[in-house]
Structures are given as C-alpha cells and as structure tokens.
C-alpha cells in the first residue's frame, strides 16, 4: 500500500517536472535560438535556421553597436520610459484620488469619458498626435515621446488606480482627518502610499508600452538623438535587405539590461504585483 502511494507520488512528481520542463523549453528555446543565430552569418541562417555557427562571429555584436548607435538609443529608451511612467503615475494617482474619494456632480461621467480611451485604437491617434506635437514645436524631442506615452496610458492607469483606491476603507481617511490631516496630506500621507501596488501595476503597463513602442517613436522623431531602442533594432532592415544576424545581436544586447534588472528586482516586482491581492 505504502509502495503504491510512493509510486503514485513519484509519478506525479515526474509528470509535474515533465510539464514544467516542457514549458521552460518552450519559453527558452526562442531566446537560445536568437542567441546562437546572433553569432552566425546571414548566409548560414538562410541555408539552415537551426545549427551551430561554423565560425562564432563576435563581429556581429561590434557591428550592431556601431551601426545603430545602440548605447545612445538605449539611454533614450530608459529616459523616455522612466519619465513617462513617472508622469503617468502622478497624473493617474491624482485623478484617481479625486474620482474615487470625492463626491461631486459629473464625477461618473468624467470617469467614463477618461477610461473610454482604452477602447480607442492607438493608430487612430496618429494624425492628431503628429499634428499637435509638430505644431507645438516639440517634434523630434524625447519630451514629445514622454508626453505621448504618458497620455496614451492615462485611461488604463486611471481605471486601475481608481479601482484600487476605491477598495481602501473610508475609515482610514476619517481617522486622519480627525488627527488634523489636510486635503493634500490625505492624498500624500494616506491614499498614495496605500495605493503603491496599484501604481506599480499601472506603471508596469505604461513602461511596457513605452519600451516596446515603435510606431509613435518613428512618427514623432527623426534623429538618433531622440529615437528609442526599438527603432535601433529596425535599423538592420532596409527596403529590400535585412541583416538578420546583426539584428539578432542587437536584440540580445537590448534585452540583457532588462533581464539583468529583472533578476535583481524580481522579488520587489512580484511582491508589488501581488500585494493587496489577498485581504487578511
């Protein structure tokens, strides 16, 4: 009986590990493929997509760095994404505070109008954004991208932050008011700190969009000084020719910092995402 139980447990463990390893392989294989092919020549890649490099071409990485000005573009991406997240969070938190904690006429209408932006496809904003940015004299600046990325994500951020703030007990604020908290202090000392998990989620959405965006960066910028990393990766494909292996090297170089940052910070990111998920 006991040996049957042991067999069952072992079988379950094997199945569990098999499933986990399968998904691990599915997740890692594209990255491994990308990494190996970043050392091959284009001709090798065209002949066979799978295989070891005949000669490990480290020169692909040097070419990637030199051709696309990757360090500069990476810095631009960091500045743009971080600033857009900061701006987006500040605006969303202030709007969410008013929309969730204050009662006034038209509050629900304002909330609906603001969050309805989630339903409008980004491509519909291309002409108005281009027109506004160009005419306001900030075309081809990082500030234009920061403004647009922060704005595009306002609806989803307000939706998330407002919902999160509504779940905070009113009694906490009432106690603070009795203790002499002003209107501003209610926001800065009570609600804002308690909404950190919601803000992390909203900020993560905004960061992912800002980091991955290609269309707006292409539309609103025109020089290396204000372009982002996604445009750098595209630098290896022209109208008729794509230098795939150098592009793979560029992709590897651009994901190393993100992966590194995640390895150091993953505990904080996960705790931020899951905090508040269970009330106790």
């Amino acid at each position: 009986m006991k040996s049957e139980q042991n067999f069952g447990t072992r079988l379950l463990t094997i199945v569990k590990w098999f499933i986990l390893l399968f998904f691990l392989l599915v997740a890692l294989l594209p990255l491994v493929w990308l990494f190996i092919n970043s050392f091959r020549s284009n001709l090798e890649l065209q002949i066979s997509s799978f295989g070891w490099p005949q000669k490990w071409l480290f020169s692909n990485y040097i070419k990637a760095m030199e051709m696309a000005s990757l360090p500069r573009l990476f810095l631009n991406s960091v500045i743009t994404s971080a600033s857009a997240v900061a701006l987006n969070i500040i605006v969303a938190a202030m709007a969410g505070f008013i929309l969730s904690r204050e009662f006034f006429k038209g509050r629900d209408t304002i909330y609906t109008v603001l969050t309805a932006g989630v339903l409008v496809p980004i491509i519909a904003f291309m002409v108005p954004y281009f027109s506004l940015i160009s005419r306001s004299g900030i075309y081809n600046t990082l500030f234009a991208l920061i403004l647009v990325y922060a704005s595009v994500n306002i609806p989803v951020s307000i939706f998330l932050v407002t919902s999160f703030m509504r779940s905070i007990p009113k009694e906490l604020e009432e106690a603070a008011i009795i203790d002499g908290c002003s209107f501003t202090q209610r926001f800065t000392k009570i609600i804002f700190p308690l909404t950190q998990s919601g803000l992390v989620t909203a900020g993560t959405f905004c960061f992912i969009y800002s980091w991955n965006d290609f269309i707006m960066a292409m539309l609103l910028t025109s020089s290396i000084e204000s372009r982002t990393i996604q445009l750098g990766i595209k630098f290896f494909s022209s109208q008729f020719i794509t230098d795939y292996t150098t592009m793979f090297a560029a992709i590897i170089l651009t994901i190393i910092p993100s992966v590194g940052a995640y390895m150091f910070l993953h505990n904080k990111i996960i705790s931020g995402l899951t905090a508040g998920a269970v009330k106790g």
């Binding site: 631009n76 500045i79 600033s83 701006l87 004299g137 900030i138 075309y139 081809n140 600046t141 990082l142 500030f143 920061i146 910028t221 025109s222 020089s223 290396i224 000084e225 204000s226």
Partner: peptide
Amino acid sequence: MGTVLPVFAQGA
C-alpha cells in the same frame, strides 16, 4: 521637467 527636457532635442 517640461522646460528642461526639450534640451534633449538636439534633432530639432
């Protein structure tokens, strides 16, 4: 931020 960031606009 609004005033200083356009400094990045070397392309302008």
